[in-house]
């Protein structure tokens, strides 16, 4: 039986992530864990997260999970969600500056207030970026299979990833600026939106993840 470990470090709505995975993969064993060995043994790993990135990195270290998370990212299908995308980069502006895991080159920044206007209406754009926005796929990937170009997914975040390597950008989204809404390389895929809250499109992406062999 295939196993999917969801990293439990106390941040965000982990139950929703597990329920959505169970829904698309009824034969897989989906489990929440804070045990480094369980992460290393699992077939696939999901790194969810909400809230502040400083707290996220601190909790990973407090629970001695950093090494196991990095090891999981070496070789098995790995999916980062929301903070689980942002934490992969080198650095985030949030909380006066937080060092990330440095798995992907790039930085995470606050939506720039001077650019936050709707191009058409001129109306101010609110932060957090909250709701259903379009995800424009810029690279073919097994995780996009069966998902329409520019399909809408549910977002909720105030910081965005500015990828340092364009080749690792899998999708972009427009909100005042154009930002990286999905990124990845080899066995790693990460999304800024919440597939577990994005109805059919989101469930399809999770379904693709649980059958993905980790090659792009």
């Amino acid at each position: 039986m295939s196993t999917v470990a969801v990293i439990d470090y106390g941040m965000g709505n982990l139950r929703s992530v597990c329920k959505a995975l169970e829904h698309v993969a009824p034969t897989a064993r989906v489990f929440l864990t804070a045990d480094p060995d369980a992460l290393v043994r699992a077939d696939r790993v999901v790194f969810p997260g909400q809230g502040a990135i400083g707290g996220c990195i601190a909790e990973l270290d407090r629970l001695s999970l950093r090494a196991a998370v990095l090891q999981a990212m070496d070789n098995k299908p790995f999916l980062g969600i929301c903070l689980g995308l942002q934490a992969l980069y080198d650095f985030s502006e949030e909380g006066g500056g937080t060092k990330g895991l440095g798995v992907l080159p790039g930085r995470v920044a606050l939506f720039p207030s001077e650019r936050m206007h709707d191009a058409r209406s001129g109306q101010a754009l609110k932060v957090p970026h909250m709701g259903w926005n379009q995800v424009h796929q810029v690279a073919g990937h097994p995780l996009w299979q069966g998902i329409d170009q520019d399909a809408r997914f549910y977002f909720v975040h105030s910081y965005y990833a500015d990828a340092g390597d364009r080749g690792q950008v899998m999708a972009v989204t427009e909100y005042g600026i154009r930002f990286t809404s999905a990124a990845g390389r080899e066995n790693i895929f990460a999304v800024q939106f919440h597939p577990e809250k994005s109805q059919q499109a989101g469930l399809k992406l999770l379904e693709n993840f649980v059958s993905w062999d980790g090659t792009a």
């Binding site: 754009l125 970026h129 709701g131 259903w132 926005n133 379009q134």
Partner: peptide, 8 residues
């Protein structure tokens, strides 16, 4: 195109 207005 961009963020959709929500109906709740």
């Amino acid at each position: 195109m961009g963020l959709a207005k929500r109906v709740i």
